[in-house]
Simulated assay, not measured.
Amino acid sequence: MESKIKRIGVLTSGGDAPGMNAAIRAVVRACSYYNVECVGIYRGYQGLIDGDFVALTPRNVSNIINLGGTILKSARSEGFRTVEGRAKAHKNLIDANIDAVVLIGGDGTFTGGMVFNQEYNFPCIGIPGTIDNDIFGTNYTIGYDTALNTVVDVIDKIRDTASSHNRLFFVEVMGRDAGFIALNAGVGAGAEEILIPEEDLGLDRLLESLKRSKRSGKSSSIVVVSEGDKIGKNVFELANYVENNMPQYEVRVSVLGHMQRGGSPSCFDRVLASRLGVKAVELLLDGQTNVMVGVVDNKVVTTDLEKAIKENHEINMELLRVSDIMSI
């Protein structure tokens, strides 16, 4: 594969996600396969500004496919939001003879890459790495499957204690603007109700649903709440409201928080990361830029970064209907 690109940088940015290391490994080894040097950039865009680079070879990424987090670290960078910061980052890339960059992250990461590409015409390819699964142009983002399995496993354990004490548990999961984790984990864990930003259930309907569950003979219930749900100001306020209106329940709240980001990636995420990492390198060597690689209908596809950022990955609302039927 003939190409003017001889040295490719790779970085991870934004929130970490299980499978990012598998993606780094895939980029490094694909570079080696095509006789291209690979450079790791520590701490995302901040590392670009600071010139925090390290050469990576296939042996440097041995035994990381099973590790959560990211060996390249991740950081927010206010400096990269400025013209001066991006200018410094560009100079560091040129001085290091880096010809292109693979960006692993979410919409914030892709926004930075798109702006950088527009200003300097610097080749960038995005790989979607976020547990929220909220990126347009791919059915699945790296880390989403692992996060789902983590949440389902925790809810299974919470249900044991809920059943033992006749309790109603509100379980808050990540998803500030998107309910993918809540909806799918809720169905998978058999939750009685699922609250997501995309669908305003309303307090009255929530109470009626819980009362129906109680009348049907259920002694405990699980409500999965996406952190971006709009019914209450927060999950604790929501729990207080239900407890005041349904004193027959002991109400408890579990906020799963950052445990959802951690852990060894699932096989699905490892395979997805490997496929997208290889394709990202091949696209750069083929002269493509300013696109994201994703998977749609099990085929690797590309989407313009601008489209990936601005358009919405629609949630499968059919699952809410399935959830209602299953909660009877």
Rank of each mutant, 00 (worst) to 15 (best):
residue 128 P to Y: 07
residue 82 T to H: 10
residue 247 P to H: 13
residue 187 V to G: 01
residue 306 E to C: 07
residue 328 I to Q: 05
residue 45 Y to D: 04
residue 183 L to D: 04
residue 3 S to I: 04
residue 206 L to H: 11
residue 128 P to H: 05
residue 170 F to H: 04
residue 279 K to D: 07
residue 57 T to K: 07
residue 55 A to Y: 13
residue 47 G to I: 12
residue 139 N to R: 01
residue 22 A to Y: 02
residue 18 P to V: 07
residue 28 V to G: 01
residue 81 R to H: 13
residue 234 N to A: 14
residue 283 L to P: 02
residue 2 E to I: 13
residue 321 R to V: 15
residue 136 F to L: 03
residue 64 I to K: 09
residue 21 N to T: 13
residue 214 K to R: 15
residue 303 T to C: 15
residue 155 I to F: 00
residue 118 Q to T: 10
residue 217 G to K: 11
residue 260 Q to D: 06
residue 110 F to P: 00
residue 37 E to K: 07
residue 158 I to N: 04
residue 291 V to Y: 10
residue 224 V to D: 07
residue 269 D to K: 03
residue 11 L to W: 04
residue 20 M to A: 08
residue 135 I to V: 15
residue 278 V to Y: 09
residue 204 D to I: 15
residue 127 I to K: 02
residue 29 R to L: 00
residue 60 N to D: 15
residue 112 G to L: 04
residue 113 G to V: 00
residue 27 V to Q: 02
residue 238 L to F: 12
residue 96 A to S: 13
residue 20 M to L: 14
residue 202 G to M: 11
residue 89 A to T: 12
residue 254 S to I: 10
residue 8 I to Q: 02
residue 91 K to I: 10
residue 222 I to C: 04
residue 281 V to A: 04
residue 203 L to F: 14
residue 319 L to D: 06
residue 274 S to N: 11
residue 184 N to P: 01
residue 64 I to V: 14
residue 223 V to A: 04
residue 199 E to T: 14
residue 135 I to H: 01
residue 174 M to D: 08
residue 146 T to R: 01
residue 185 A to I: 06
residue 108 G to L: 03
residue 9 G to T: 06
residue 209 S to G: 13
residue 13 S to Y: 02
residue 34 Y to P: 00
residue 186 G to Q: 03
residue 305 L to T: 09
residue 90 H to C: 12
residue 278 V to R: 04
residue 23 A to G: 06
residue 184 N to I: 11
residue 125 I to C: 00
residue 195 L to V: 10
residue 106 G to H: 01
residue 72 L to G: 05
residue 243 E to T: 10
residue 139 N to W: 03
residue 18 P to K: 01
residue 137 G to C: 05
residue 53 F to A: 00
residue 244 N to W: 04
residue 206 L to K: 14
residue 72 L to N: 05
residue 238 L to D: 07
residue 237 E to P: 05
residue 217 G to N: 13
residue 57 T to Y: 09
residue 66 N to W: 13
residue 228 G to L: 09
residue 216 S to I: 12
residue 130 T to D: 03
residue 172 E to G: 07
residue 255 V to M: 12
residue 235 V to L: 07
residue 136 F to A: 13
residue 292 M to Q: 11
residue 196 I to Q: 00
residue 248 Q to P: 00
residue 289 T to F: 06
residue 79 G to I: 08
